Amino acid sequence: MNTPEQSQLGKSSAYVDQYDPSLLFPIPRASKRAEIGVVGQPIFVGADLWTAFELSWLNTKGKPQVALAHITVPAESTHIVESKSFKLYLNSLNNTRIEAVDEVRQRIRQDISRAVWHGGPMQASVGVKMVLAEEFDKEPVHELDGLNLDRMDLECTRYEPAPDLLTATCDEAPVTETFVSHLLKSNCLVTGQPDWGSVQISYTGHQIDQPGLLQYIVSFRNHNEFHEQCVERIFMDIWTRCKPTKLTVYARYTRRGGLDINPWRSSAPGKLPPNVRTARQ
């Protein structure tokens, strides 16, 4: 079984500039999910929305081509792809001659799909949308919608995940609210390098205490975990402690190595959020 410590994170890596899908390093979701009480089928659905900002290859005449790629990895997949290996894989296209843009898209789709199911039955394939240079100007920048929790002036003293900070008022009528914070920070599970993000929490249920929710988000500041794992931990902590009837957690992390990762988890199937970057991304 692949573990994060066996990946290329924190290690010197050779620059491979010819197409090599074997560079992709899948990591099972199951072990980290077991830590938060998710065994077997999760109670949530969702996806990991990736953006590749450094994507290039050669056409058949040897002329470099550039594009952005929006990549959607289903949350029900058995594995995630370690982000440095994803970057190394994309780099392997740099001096590879490929005739058509759609062939690039198909290769990425097939290779990532194989990696995230890692030999198991493929229940849902990865989605890939290519954005060519002439379309770059159409790519919007927009902040997450919702009431900004960061407006509150409060004391924060805990910097490891503290779900006991989460409470909800059970003696009032249920509400539907959406909150946003830009104070989410965690660290890479292997290297300890900081990961910066914004998070949007939407729910229906007993009213969640806002100061406690913000302090809880801040409590991830010294926590070492991958993006996808942090969002699933946030989802499960709120679901367990506050018992909403509906819940969605969506985080947008700033890019590292030309990639951003934006996990979305929801208690019910629904339309995926648009993969629109924020100002910090």
Rank of each mutant, 00 (worst) to 15 (best):
M1C: 08
E5K: 14
S12N: 10
S12D: 14
A14I: 09
A14K: 15
Y19N: 12
P26F: 00
A30S: 15
R33V: 14
V38F: 03
G40T: 00
G40F: 02
D48K: 01
A52N: 00
A52Y: 02
E54V: 08
K63C: 07
Q65K: 13
I71P: 11
I71L: 00
I71N: 12
E76H: 07
S77D: 06
L88K: 06
N95W: 05
N95M: 09
E103H: 12
I108Q: 08
I112D: 11
M130K: 09
V131P: 07
L132E: 08
E143I: 01
D145S: 14
L147M: 06
R151D: 11
R151P: 06
L154C: 08
Y159T: 10
Y159S: 01
T169S: 09
D171E: 10
V175N: 03
V190E: 11
G192C: 12
P194R: 07
S198Q: 07
H206G: 10
Q207T: 14
D209M: 03
Q210L: 02
L214N: 02
N222K: 08
Q229N: 11
I234A: 03
I234M: 13
C242M: 01
K243N: 10
T245W: 01
T248N: 10
D260V: 00
P263D: 09
P263C: 00
P269Q: 14
T278F: 03
R280H: 06
Q281D: 09
